[in-house]
């Protein structure tokens, strides 16, 4: 008894963290379990086990094209936001210039504005300008709200670099350009990758801003939302869980490759 108590108090933080992860993953386990449900119209009550939903994930109309749109928009928005955000991060981290306060404010404000306000105001402007919302308005909106997150992530990485590494490159007769390309950029790359990953996950899962600026274009979160009342097919669970699992696999594989490369270098 005493031993058990001591073990608990010693590992309290780990137990607590385990419970935290459980809380985080309970709904995902639920989503997974209900992806095997032989549902009739709505997938809210457990009927019986079937593999049917996994065999035909694209059976419900529109569901796979919605997923395709989400992925396309996610990739485009990530590319745009990562490029623009990284440039801003370098300017903020490496240069002294007038108007810094304005730039900082403009980066901070989109993060301090509820998504609802971002989405609604953008739609108001598009409508005033006679712009029909659709695929490209979603991309524009996603780039807009992802930029700030990329700036914060990349800037933190640049700030944590040891300036002596770049000095060393200069001492070894590398010019500014070479130093940037062969020393600075590779060192900042993990930060840029982190920012891109964050941008993709935010874009892929965004519902509120997309809902305002989508017109008739359907993304995966929009699909789930519009079918929520009338009965969501279990294929949505299949796709949701698969994307989660795929993301996990890709990142873990990336980690392993990264570690191997570090060891061999």
């Amino acid at each position: 008894m005493k031993k058990a108590l001591r073990w608990i108090s010693k590992n309290l933080i780990k137990i607590y963290a385990f419970l935290g992860f459980t809380y985080l993953f309970i709904p995902i386990i639920y989503t997974f379990v209900f992806s095997f449900n032989k549902y009739v119209r709505s997938n809210l009550v457990w009927k019986s086990f079937t593999l049917e939903n996994w065999k035909n994930p694209c059976k419900p109309i529109d569901i796979c094209s919605a997923l395709g749109n989400s992925i396309k928009i996610g990739l485009l928005a990530t590319a745009g936001a990562t490029l623009l955000g990284t440039l801003i991060a370098f300017a903020l981290a490496r240069y002294a210039f007038k108007g810094r306060g304005f730039v900082n404010t403009l980066i901070f404000l989109p993060m301090a504005t509820p998504e609802l306000v971002l989405g609604a105001s953008l739609l108001t402007m598009f409508l005033n300008l006679g712009f029909n919302p659709g695929f490209w308005t979603i991309v524009i909106a996603h780039v807009m709200f992802c930029i700030s997150f990329v700036v914060v992530t990349v800037k933190a990485r640049i700030a944590s670099l040891d300036p002596r590494l770049e000095q060393a490159a200069m001492d070894l007769y590398a010019n500014e350009h070479e130093t940037f390309r062969r020393v600075t950029l590779p060192l900042v790359a993990p930060g840029i990758a982190g920012g891109a990953l964050l941008a993709f996950s935010l874009s892929f899962d965004d519902f509120i801003i997309t809902n305002f600026n989508s017109g008739t274009t359907m993304t995966f979160p929009l699909y789930v939302y519009t079918h929520e009342k009338g009965g969501l097919p279990a294929q949505a669970n299949v796709i949701g869980f698969s994307m989660f699992f795929l993301a996990l696999l890709i990142v873990i594989a990336g980690q392993i490759v990264g570690r191997k490369r570090k060891v061999s270098a």
């Binding site: 989503t31 519902f207 979160p221 789930v224 949701g240 989660f244 993301a247």
Partner: peptide, 9 residues
């Protein structure tokens, strides 16, 4: 990772 399993789901 939970972000990828839609927040609506």
């Amino acid at each position: 990772a939970p972000f990828f399993c839609s927040f609506l789901l």
